[in-house]
Design a protein around this nucleic acid. Structure first.
Lengths: 222, 222
DNA sequence: GGGAATAATAAGGGCAACCTTATCTTAATC
DNA sequence: GATTAAGATAAGGTTGCCCTTATTATTCCC
């Protein structure tokens, strides 16, 4: 099973769903937004995906990956993140370009190449952005962290991962020093969904709440 | 110039033309054959390519790459052969799979990645099959050799390159030990376009003439 | 319970790259 | 100069994935 090759578009939908939400239902609108297509197109495509048994669509509720879909999605994510490692560690490609370049390569990568790449890289556990690399069977343990947007004022946290796909978002976060491993303190949170004020490496940084969602952190113990 | 991204199909046509014949005209039938499409489809596509200024089509004569097309083709070939080096040298992918896997990757490779890959690999001059890797501007010097099919009986030659794209052909030649660097002697040639008989590493091998065309050799001096 | 936002469906189109079938043109060869 | 093979052209079809516009259905929330 799962030997039928999926189209590039199919892979992008599956990956988007996995990135948005591993298990629960994803609203068609969010999916459409992330993939930059209209809601009508997303609807059409979700129908096709559910015909293939990759997602389960509950009208007016959203779509969720099936077991098969989750496996396929994990596989796509694995390929992408392995390529990100290669592009970053070996080719020294710019941080902000990794996602984009790896995304192109991922669709063109045969299973044999994926596994050889993993071995070559020493079976890394996370991509340069800090996200876990799924196993060969597509399974993976989500990070044990919370979005920065949910951290309360005064707390100090450590960045585990940056989980964004839009180039502008990646660039924006990179410019503000929000990289895996960094220690940051939330010094203030403006009311009404306003921006957070952060202390990042002796630097004061303002960050919109919707962008803070892409930064996965753990509470800094000690 | 040459900054507009070409479709995968376009790249395949350009590459096929470059592989079939760097400079001269290629018959539409040969092109169609190599790309596994009908002559009608190839005709259509050649029209599109000539509208883009990539080829010059002379009706009933064939198509030839323009300067622009040759550059673009060289670039595609460069990407593919660099990936072949990577897959072979670093990932230890099987010889007979290199072409196929590298071909998928080549279409998904940005210029920045191509150049970083070249640096990473130490700017190799040839791919594992022995074919030259074009420079970043797409230019390259063809091998100074002749097809094995044109060697006369009794001569001893050295294999410079295997220049095939069809998997079956690659497998067939590989099984018979026809690899770059091998020394072979043409011991007989059957009449009427019949097969050649070769001495390859103390082994006697029969090889169809149309397959011998894919093996580029140089006369063994001394 | 009613209005707003979101989602679904229908209908019609577009584009790239392929296909088939059929007709016509040119080139190559005896 | 006629035949044949190869190439060109026309017409119509398919598939995947996207689009717009319009209508209808559902859910959520005050």
């Amino acid at each position: 099973m799962t030997i039928q090759p999926l189209s590039e578009s199919t892979e992008m939908y599956l990956k988007a769903m996995a990135e948005l939400n591993q298990h629960e239902t994803v609203a068609i609108g969010r999916l459409a937004g992330r993939l930059n297509v209209t809601a009508v197109s997303a609807n059409e495509m979700v129908r096709r995906l559910s015909e293939q048994g990759l997602v389960k669509h509950t009208p007016y509720k959203g779509a969720a990956l099936t077991k098969k879909g989750r496996e396929a999605a994990g596989n796509v994510v694995r390929r992408q993140r392995l390529w990100e490692c290669f592009l970053h560690d070996q080719l020294k490609i710019e941080w902000t370009q990794l996602y984009e370049y790896a995304c192109s390569l991922e669709h063109a990568t045969a299973p044999e190449v994926t596994e050889a790449l993993a071995v070559f890289l020493g079976s890394p556990k996370t991509c340069p952005h800090g996200n876990p690399i799924p196993a060969a069977d597509g399974s993976f343990t989500p990070l044990n962290g919370i979005p920065l947007s949910e951290v309360s004022v005064g707390q100090t946290v450590r960045v585990l991962a940056v989980n964004a796909s839009a180039k502008e978002v990646i660039v924006h976060l990179h410019e503000r020093g929000l990289l895996p491993g960094r220690k940051i303190k939330v010094t203030a949170a403006a009311p009404l969904q306003g921006p957070l004020t952060l202390q990042v490496e002796n630097r004061e940084v303002a960050l919109g709440l919707h962008l803070a969602e892409f930064v996965i952190v753990e509470i800094h113990s000690k």
